[in-house]
Design a protein around this nucleic acid. Structure first.
Lengths: 345, 345
DNA sequence: GACTCCCCCGGAAACGTTTACGGGTTGCAG
DNA sequence: CTGCAACCCGTAAACGTTTCCGGGGGAGTC
C-alpha cells in the first residue's frame, strides 16, 4: 500500500480509499489504479486487525471421514463460501477437552464465528460458549435453558418412525445397535427406542440391545455380539456406518436381509443407497442441519443482537429394500433404479 | 494487553514479555500473571500481523463429499492439527477459475501455505503458484519441469495392475468407465489403459470405453450406456464412486458380479469394503498422499529454502470379491470377514 | 466580494501485538 | 571505591491497513 501510494504520488490514505472504492477524485483514481495494477494485493491480516473481522468461520465435527459429517461439512462449506468467507475445519474425535480448547480459543478472535457439532455437551461447553466473544451455533441437542443458537433434529421421533415402520411390517423382535450411551444422540436414541416400544405395547428385551461406536467396525462387532445371544427379526441401527456394519454381520452370519431380518439405519446418506440391499434409513438431515446452522451463524454475525434461535429439522423415514415387506423383495439381487438428481452440485 | 499491563502496573512491553515467557523479573512475572489470570487472551490477528504468520494452512479439493477427498482431508487435518495449526478447506468443484482465484488470494498472506489437489492443471495454475509468496504443495500429476513441491501417484501403473489382474483371471473383453478426459487423472488413466492392453497384446476396442464424471450417478449412467452397446466380461472404473455406480448398473441389468462381469475400481476407500460384493480396487493412497503433502508443506514452511521435492505414492491392487476368480466366489451373499484395524484414529 | 457548503486530500491515530534499543539498577570483582 | 557486566524495564517503532479529522480549494448564493 505504501508502495502503491508512493508510485501514484498520493497519500496512503487516498490510495486506500480508492482501492476500497470509497471517495477519490477521478484523477487520483486513475493514478492509483495504474500504480496498483502491477500486482498489489492487500494484506488480509492487517485488514482484519483494523476491521475486527477475519472472514473465517470454524466448524468442529467429530470425524471428517464419517459420511454424516462429510455431508454436513460440504453443506456448510457451500454456504460459507457463498458468503465470501472461508471455512476452518476441526476434527475433535469427540474428545471433550479438545472441544473445550477450541471453544476457548475463540476468545482470540481468530474467526468470526463457529459451528460446533457436539455429541457430548457438558457444562464447560456451555460456559465456554457463553464467554465467547464471537457467535457459536451448536448442532445437536441442548438443554432447554441454553441460550445458544441451536440446530437439532428429533432423534427420538426418528427412532419412533423406524420402530413403527418395522412393527407395521409385522416384525416383533426388534434389535437395536446403538452408539455410546454417554453421547447425546446415543442417549436420546436409547430413550426413544424404549419409549417407542412402550407406546406400541411391545415388551423391551435388553438382550436385543447392543452398544458400539458410531463406526463400521464397531457396528459390525456389536451386531455379532447381539446375534450370538438373540434372534431379532429386525434391526435398528443408530447410524449409517453402524448399519452397514450390521448388514455385513447379518449376511456373514447367513441371515437374509430383509427376509430374515429387516434392517433400518439412521442418518441417511449417499452410502445408504450404495450398499446392497439398499438401506432403509431415518434421515436426520445432516446436510440440512449444516446448511441451517451456517445460515444462522451468518445471520448472527450480521446482527449480533438477535435473540437465541432454535431450529429443528424433522426426521424422515426413507424406505428401501433392506426393510421392504418380504413379498415386495425382488428375487434377484438388483439395486433400485437410478435416482437421478439425488445429489450433485 | 494494555489492560493487563495497567492492572499489573508495568509497561505493555513487560507484560508481553512475561506472557510469552521471555525475560521478566520474578516480581513482574507474578504481577503480570495475576493480572492476566482473570481472562486475558491474546488477539491472534494482531499477533499474526507482527509475526508474519497466521498458523493457518489451506486445502483445496474438488468435492468434500467424495470419499476420496474426505479421506485426504481427514489425513491432512490430522497432520496440520498435530503441528498446532488449523486447516482451511475449500471445495472448488473442479472449477479452474475458482482454483486460480484461490491461488491468487494466497498473495494476501492469509494462510501460511496451501495444499492444492488439482485435477486440471493449467499454465495459469503454475504461474499463480510461482508468484505465490507462501508455499504451495500440489497433489496430482504435474509436468516434469514444474518447480513445485508435488505428491503424486502413478495412475498409469495403477491401471496396468488392474488390467493385468483381470487378464490373469482370464477376462478378455475389459470395459473401462473413465472420468472426464480433460482432467489429469482421466487422461492418464485413458492412456494407461491403452498402454496396458497394448503391452499385453490385447486389442483395444473403443466401444468398451465410456466416460462420465467422477460421481455415482454419472458412473452408473455411463455404465448403462456401455452395456447397451457392448458385452464386457470385466469392467475397470476410474474411481470408487464410478465403480459403485457401475456395480449397480451391472446388477440392475441382470449381470452377476464377478461371475459374468468382474469389476475393479480405483481409489480404494472404506466404501469399497461396504458394498456387496466388496470391490476390488487399485488403492492410490489418497490418505497417504494427503499425509505426505501436509508433511512436505510443513517442512517447507519451516525451511523455505529447500529445493522442490516430488514424492510418489505407489498404487497397490486390493483384490476383493468383485473380481475374484469365479471358482472362488462363495455361493451365498456373504461379505468377507471383518478387517479389524483397517481404520480408526 | 464574502460567506457557506461540499468535496478531496493528507496527516495521524488506531487496531493489538512483538521487539529493538537504551537507560537504569544491581551485583561482583579488582 | 570504581569499573564492568548482567539484567530489567519502559519507550517507541514496527507490522499493513482503515478511518477520523482538519485544511484547502472550488463552486454556488446572497
Amino acid at each position: 500500500m505504501h508502495t502503491v501510494a508512493a508510485r501514484a504520488g498520493v497519500s496512503i490514505a487516498s490510495a486506500s480509499r480508492v482501492l476500497n472504492g470509497v471517495g477519490g477524485g477521478p484523477e487520483t483514481v486513475r493514478k492509483v489504479h495504474a500504480a496498483a495494477e502491477v500486482g498489489y494485493v492487500p494484506n488480509a491480516v492487517a485488514r482484519s486487525l483494523q476491521s475486527q473481522r477475519t472472514g473465517l468461520v470454524a466448524l468442529a465435527v467429530e470425524d471428517l471421514g464419517n459420511p454424516v459429517y462429510a455431508a454436513m461439512t460440504r453443506a456448510v462449506e457451500e454456504i460459507v463460501a457463498a458468503s465470501g468467507r472461508q471455512l476452518l475445519v476441526h476434527a475433535t474425535g469427540g474428545r471433550v477437552d479438545d472441544e473445550r480448547a477450541l471453544l476457548r480459543r475463540l476468545a482470540n478472535r481468530h474467526v468470526d464465528g463457529m459451528i460446533a457439532s457436539l455429541i457430548r455437551v457438558t457444562e464447560e461447553h456451555l460456559a465456554a460458549i457463553g464467554d465467547s466473544p464471537v457467535p457459536v451455533v451448536v448442532v445437536g441437542r441442548l438443554g432447554a435453558d441454553a441460550a445458544v443458537d441451536n440446530v437439532r433434529t428429533d432423534s427420538r421421533a426418528g427412532v419412533a418412525l423406524a420402530v413403527d415402520h418395522l412393527l407395521a411390517a409385522g416384525r416383533r423382535r426388534i434389535g437395536f445397535v446403538n452408539g455410546p450411551l454417554d453421547t447425546v444422540p446415543g442417549a436420546a436414541r436409547a430413550a426413544g427406542f424404549r419409549a417407542a416400544l412402550a407406546a406400541r405395547g411391545v415388551e423391551f428385551d435388553d438382550r436385543l440391545v447392543e452398544v458400539g461406536d458410531f463406526r463400521y467396525d464397531a457396528g459390525r462387532a456389536a451386531t455379532e455380539r447381539l446375534l450370538a445371544r438373540a434372534r431379532p427379526d429386525a434391526l435398528l441401527c443408530a447410524d449409517v456406518l453402524i448399519a452397514v456394519g450390521a448388514l455385513h454381520a447379518l449376511l456373514a452370519a447367513g441371515h437374509r436381509v430383509p427376509d430374515d431380518v429387516a434392517l433400518v439405519g439412521m442418518d441417511d446418506t449417499e452410502l445408504a443407497r450404495m450398499v446392497f440391499p439398499q438401506l432403509s434409513s431415518v434421515s436426520l438431515g445432516s446436510a440440512e442441519r449444516g446448511r441451517r446452522a451456517a445460515e444462522l451463524l451468518l445471520q448472527r454475525i450480521a446482527e449480533p443482537g438477535l435473540p437465541p434461535r432454535r431450529e429443528q429439522v424433522p426426521p424422515r423415514l426413507v424406505v428401501r429394500a433392506s426393510s421392504a415387506a418380504p413379498s415386495a423383495v425382488p428375487t434377484v439381487a438388483v439395486p433400485g433404479p437410478l435416482e437421478l438428481g439425488a445429489r450433485g452440485r
